[in-house]
């Protein structure tokens, strides 16, 4: 078994218009910038994107939004150092925003990957974000019912992958990547290193290969933060 494919373009070629896509990362940390940029080249439109944020500057997720490819964004915190691309489109009504508390977003994704259609959380009880949702009392406390989140594709940034798709991550770039890898029909991974089977100590595997469909080698990936400091614009 070898899940490696040769080019980024091949990885995203099957993403259709209207797809729901989870994109890993928290701000720029763990954001699969190269996969996002090739998705811009590919040109799929009317996408629903699930990410913690709404992009920063004019690269990565912000660039995907700027190209008009995203109809709907599900996120917890659509603010950044330079959120103008999202903000303008949101205030114009050109993009729909579903705001989800960060822990609820993470758990909805985890539940999606784990086959749990709904769960109860204390988060949001008594707030506008719980309106219209089922409330239940357990042991004297109130909880809000939340639904799982799943996606057609997940775009993931890993540090190290073997041919089976076993993955490790670097530092805090882990964040949403391992849970998103579990919750999509097709999980696409860009990785800084591809190593032979057995080269990742089984004790150190964070995402087991069963959750991964395709791996592309992207050595020395760009950091969104560095691109923004250079005032980069994509494309």
């Amino acid at each position: 078994m070898d899940k490696t494919i040769a080019t980024l373009h091949q990885a995203v070629a099957k993403i259709p218009d209207g797809a729901t896509i989870m994109i890993g990362g928290f701000g720029g940390s763990g954001a699969p910038v190269e996969l996002i940029h090739v998705l811009i080249d590919h040109g799929a439109k009317h996408l629903t994107v699930i990410n913690n944020n709404a992009g920063n500057g004019h690269v990565g997720l912000a660039a995907l939004i700027e190209q008009g490819q995203v109809d709907r964004l599900i996120c917890s915190f659509p603010r950044s150092a330079d959120p103008r691309v999202f903000t303008e489109r949101y205030l114009d009504g050109r993009i729909t925003l579903d705001i989800v508390p960060q822990g609820t977003l993470a758990e909805r994704i985890r539940a999606g990957g784990a086959g749990i259609p709904a769960f109860y959380t204390p988060t949001g009880f008594g707030t506008t974000l719980a309106e219209g949702k089922q409330i239940e009392e357990f042991d004297g406390r109130h909880y809000v019912r939340e639904r799982w989140l799943k996606a057609d594709f997940a775009l993931i940034k890993a540090e190290c992958a073997d041919p089976h798709g076993n993955l490790t991550y670097r530092r805090a770039a882990r964040n949403f990547n391992p849970i998103m890898a579990t919750a999509a029909t097709t999980t696409l991974v860009q990785t800084s290193h591809i190593v032979p089977l057995g080269a990742i100590d089984p004790d150190h595997v964070i995402t087991p290969g069963i959750f991964v469909n395709h791996i592309v080698h992207v050595p020395n990936p760009a950091q969104e933060e560095d691109l923004n400091r250079q005032e980069a614009v994509y494309p």
Partner: peptide, 29 residues
Amino acid sequence: QEDWDLINAGKKAITLKPGTAFFHHADSF
């Protein structure tokens, strides 16, 4: 000296120290 894989919730650069642990978002919450 920033490592942009190593940030806090405010997206500011932080550093490692003995005993630092990393985990994914579902574990974090």
